[in-house]
Amino acid sequence: MTGQVRSSYRRIGDLLSQVANAVGGLLFITAFGGFIVQIFFRYVIGEPLRWTEEFTMIAFIWTVFWVAAFVVPIREHVSFDVVYDVVSPRVRRVFAIFSMVMVIAAFGILIPYTLEYLDFLQRRRSPVMRWPMHWIYGCYLLFVVGFALKAAARLFLLVGPDWRAEI
């Protein structure tokens, strides 16, 4: 891969990362804002709003799955560092390649089942705001696909000539 192509990929990746961070931040602010509105109406005004609890829960669910898929670097997710840190870089590479292949396979298997469940949820609505449940939990599909794509990108880098940068 030439330096210009690598630089272009890096710029695109940086832009996508900035967008993902901004969306994650907005989702968190939305969840936190709903929580503050809920507290204000419950404890200051003395009349709790029914929709704020559901809204905050939905915003929190979206925040967690969005951030896990698109904001947190794949190497920062749960790992078994006790073994990983004591082996050579080449063995770490093998571990990482194996891990990425397993993640891609597992998440690939999850996609049709997730779509099936979201189809089932299409006929259901949230209890208070009456939002379609498949939209509320559709963030899980984004998580599965997004995380699998991040794993595929890391796998691509791990089998490339600059694999040491990924360890």
Rank of each mutant, 00 (worst) to 15 (best):
G3Q: 05
R6P: 01
R6S: 06
S8M: 10
S8Q: 11
R10Q: 05
I12A: 09
G13M: 03
D14A: 02
L15Q: 01
V19Y: 09
A20E: 11
A20K: 08
N21F: 08
A22S: 11
V23S: 13
L26N: 12
L26T: 10
L27Q: 14
F28T: 13
F28W: 15
I29G: 13
T30S: 15
T30D: 13
T30M: 15
G34K: 01
F35G: 10
Q38M: 10
F40N: 02
F41A: 02
Y43T: 04
I45A: 09
I45M: 09
G46Y: 14
E47H: 08
L49M: 08
W51G: 01
T52E: 00
T52M: 00
E53I: 00
F55V: 03
M57N: 02
M57S: 04
M57V: 02
I61C: 15
I61P: 05
W62D: 13
W62L: 11
T63V: 11
F65E: 12
F65W: 15
F65V: 12
V67S: 13
A68N: 07
A68E: 07
A69I: 04
A69E: 05
V71N: 12
P73F: 05
V78K: 13
V78E: 12
F80S: 04
D81S: 13
D81V: 09
D81Q: 10
V83R: 06
V83Y: 14
V86G: 02
R90T: 11
V91Q: 07
R93L: 10
A96K: 04
A96F: 01
I97L: 11
V101F: 09
I104N: 02
A106Y: 13
I109Y: 14
I109V: 14
I109S: 03
I111G: 00
I111T: 03
P112D: 07
Y113H: 15
L115E: 00
Y117M: 14
Y117L: 15
D119H: 00
F120Q: 10
L121W: 00
Q122C: 01
Q122T: 08
R123C: 01
P127G: 03
P127A: 04
P127M: 03
M129C: 02
R130V: 10
W131K: 03
P132W: 09
W135E: 06
W135M: 07
Y137G: 05
Y137D: 11
C139K: 01
Y140H: 05
Y140P: 02
L141H: 06
F143S: 04
V145W: 06
L149I: 12
A151N: 07
A152W: 00
A152Q: 01
L155N: 05
L158P: 07
L158N: 03
V159F: 06
P161M: 07
W163S: 06
A165H: 07
A165Y: 05
E166C: 10
I167M: 06
I167V: 14
